[in-house]
Write a protein that binds this DNA or RNA. Structure first.
Length: 522
DNA sequence: CGTGCTTTCG
């Protein structure tokens, strides 16, 4: 506790308070200390100083105490652009984007930081198209200049959306604007190109950098891993170590991911078990997830299960999902059922994610009665399924499709095209509808109907309708691509001579002349 | 003398 008054104690001035309060907000354990500093501010009548008020307001937003922040804001006799921006930032960070937007609209004056706060808020809340819309609005405002933070956020939004046209535009914009190309921007560029399917461009940006920090290396490594280029990821990783850069836990996640997608079991295990001895990084649950995925995918299910049972951390849904997903790939129902029992014993309330996978596992081997059972269980415990969704960018405009979409303005035309495409690839003998992964207990005909409505199929039909013959089609999907869609994409790439790049939840699939870059290992 | 924003993975 702070001692508020002692006879010999010198009274701190307003500068002291600003320093102390900002120092508090940089330390998560300093909430109480900061609050007593607030008390002293009032006692010493410094509340009317704008710098003191702003630092207090900012402190409350950093500790997610929005009532406190609001109180400081309301009681400040004068407010400037920093005051307003801090409050907007507070609401944006705690996810209340509506309130943030309302305040942003009401602010008497906005500068580059105010815009950055708003754009960052939308990116943080996963509202990437809204972030890009605000960037666009910002460009029309002559009174403000784009800064580094805005560029980084916008590139991150493009990366998440797979919006390569807009991403490239931003790259060109950086080069001709006054924004200095910083290490943050370079990292964001590498990440954007990699996540938009242009690993070649990502490499070009990376290779031109003379001094690389751990973020840039990590971006490059993770990008290669996502593209199934595990060997390249390992090679860049050893180059990084050779240059004396110490990996952080995210670098290691990236490398392990790469090993897992490329079936590099020995390399991945060796890195995992060396994390602590070599780099002093204690494996977190996500690293265990990678290891289990690596072993399970490669068919070493028992070994993967052993790792789960002996982990020093409580396994979470992600871990069980990795294990169950491997059981599905290798059609191991026995182990799948044991895992479900095991989860049920540990925590009977929260294993919804497992039931989706178990249901898929039963479906994969045609046990439709058990699929129905798992689905009933899911509705009983109220599991929410996130709807499948795919995006495609055509001429800089992002089009969004949901599974069984009926809302897109051109849905009739798209569905007609899709039927035509599916018929053509079936007739050529490259595609037989595969309904294994449809969750519903439907008739064969209905199942076929259901898979043909998957969002990535709608997106590819839209792409074939609206892009030039011979140009690649790029699609981003929120879930993992299903076996049937994977098979259809391979056939379409061959029959229509199109390169199709699909980024799903876990990696990239590049379809060319009937083959996929993942070699059907995903 | 002091205040607000940003990156790699889940």
């Amino acid at each position: 506790m702070l001692v508020l008054s002692r006879p010999n104690l010198k009274i701190p001035d307003k500068y002291t308070f600003t320093f102390v309060i900002t120092a508090c907000s940089r330390h998560p354990m300093m909430v109480n200390y900061g609050e007593s500093a607030h008390g002293m501010v009032i006692k010493n009548r410094y509340e009317s100083d704008m710098f003191v008020g702003n630092s207090l307001l900012s402190m409350y937003t950093i500790f997610s105490k929005m009532e406190g922040a609001r109180r400081v804001f309301d009681e400040m006799p004068q407010r400037d652009v920093v005051t307003w921006t801090s409050l907007v930032s507070g609401y944006a960070k705690c996810g209340d984007l509506d309130t943030a937007q309302n305040l942003f609209d009401k602010m008497p004056e906005r500068n580059d930081v105010s815009w950055a706060v708003m754009i960052a808020g939308y990116v943080g809340g996963g509202k990437y198209t809204d972030a890009l819309r605000h960037f666009n609005d910002m460009l029309y405002d002559d009174k403000v200049k784009v800064n580094e933070a805005v560029i980084v956020c916008v590139l991150s939004a493009c990366a998440h959306l797979g919006a390569i046209d807009q991403g490239k535009w931003v790259h060109v914009y950086i080069d001709k604007s006054e924004v200095a190309v910083s290490s943050n921007i370079l990292t964001a560029l590498i990440d954007m190109y990699a996540k938009c399917g242009r690993i070649d461009c990502a490499k070009r940006v990376f290779n031109r950098i003379s001094e690389r920090d751990v973020f840039m290396w990590t971006s490059m490594i993770s990008g290669l891993s996502m593209h199934g280029l595990g060997k390249d990821a390992l090679q860049i990783f050893s180059q990084m170590l050779a240059e004396g850069i110490k990996p952080d836990n995210i670098t290691l996640l990236g490398v392990l991911n790469g090993c897992s997608h490329s079936g590099l079991v020995a390399e991945g295990c060796s890195i995992f078990y060396n994390m602590e001895p070599l780099w002093g990084i204690v494996p977190k649950i996500a690293h265990y997830g990678c290891l289990i995925d690596l072993l399970g995918r490669a068919g070493q299910l028992i070994r993967a299960f052993e790792v789960v049972k002996s982990m020093p951390i409580e396994p979470d849904v992600v871990i069980w999902r990795a294990l169950l997903s491997s059981c599905r790939i290798h059609c191991d129902v026995g182990l799948g059922e044991r895992i479900i029992d095991h989860i049920a014993q540990l925590d009977p309330s929260n294993h919804g994610g497992g039931h989706v996978l178990l249901s898929n596992l039963y479906a994969a081997i045609g046990h439709w009665d058990k699929v129905a059972g798992a689905r009933n269980m899911m509705s009983e415990i109220g599991v929410e399924l996130s709807p499948g969704c795919s995006w495609i960018e055509v001429d800089g405009v992002i089009h969004e499709f949901f599974a069984a979409d009926r809302l897109h303005p051109r849905i009739v035309e798209i569905h007609k095209k899709l039927n035509e495409v599916l018929q053509r690839i079936s007739m050529k003998g490259f595609y037989i509808p595969n309904t294994k992964q449809v969750l519903f207990d439907l008739s064969e005909e209905e199942k076929e109907q259901a898979v043909s409505w998957h969002s990535e199929k709608l997106a590819v039909a839209f792409g074939l309708l609206n892009t030039e013959v011979g140009t690649p089609i790029r699609i981003v999907k929120n879930l993992r691509i299903c076996e049937d869609c994977h098979c259809a994409m391979k056939a379409i790439s061959r029959v229509f001579s199109r390169e199709i790049v699909v980024r799903d939840r876990s990696r990239f699939h590049t379809f060319r002349e009937g083959n996929c870059s993942c070699s059907d290992y995903w």
